[in-house]
Design a protein around this nucleic acid. Structure first.
Lengths: 87, 87
DNA sequence: ATGTGACTCTAAGTCCGTT
DNA sequence: GAACGGACTTAGAGTCACA
């Protein structure tokens, strides 16, 4: 087996992609939720709209509890925020 | 339909349960992973051992990226950290 | 209705130790 | 090996004015 380790620079890149994928997913779910606006979603879960926007753009590294708030407001489970393709 | 809103005090309680469920899950996966120690897991994902312990006890509110690190170290997807029952 | 930069302040996360 | 505590640094929470 080769070296499993990943260069730190690559690691950062991967993490960025991960956050962006998460953001895209949230945005998608938001649109599917009656074309809700970031503002409306922010109101639902008591988070600032700019904060929501930042997450959707993958610029934020949110905590689980905030993810849960968002998932709740979107009517999905946290698990679904991380699920790929299906649907 | 009754009031969907939840008293803030209850909300905190629910969040605690959520973090604890997550912690239990991680602990379970850690044991299933060759009875790995918190210390070894911490080393794997570059996180402090006391921090891992705190998460498992539901006392911490970790960020997604750290969850991803842990999931990676445990050889599972982040999604699986939130999946219920079904093995 | 959203993107962005900048800001304050709280909590995330580390490191030391003892039980 | 893990729980728990104290003290500490840094990153994220949370907010705003403006494009």
């Amino acid at each position: 087996m080769k070296d499993k380790r990943i260069p730190l620079s690559k690691q950062k890149e991967i993490e960025q992609q991960f956050l962006q994928a998460l953001g895209k997913k949230i945005r998608k779910l938001r649109f599917e939720n009656d074309n809700m606006s970031q503002e409306a979603l922010g109101l639902e879960c008591n988070l600032d709209r700019t904060y929501i926007g930042g997450i959707e753009r993958g610029e934020r590294n949110p905590t689980v509890l905030n993810l849960k708030k968002i998932a709740d407001a979107l009517g999905v489970s946290v698990e679904q925020l991380f699920s790929e393709g299906s649907k």
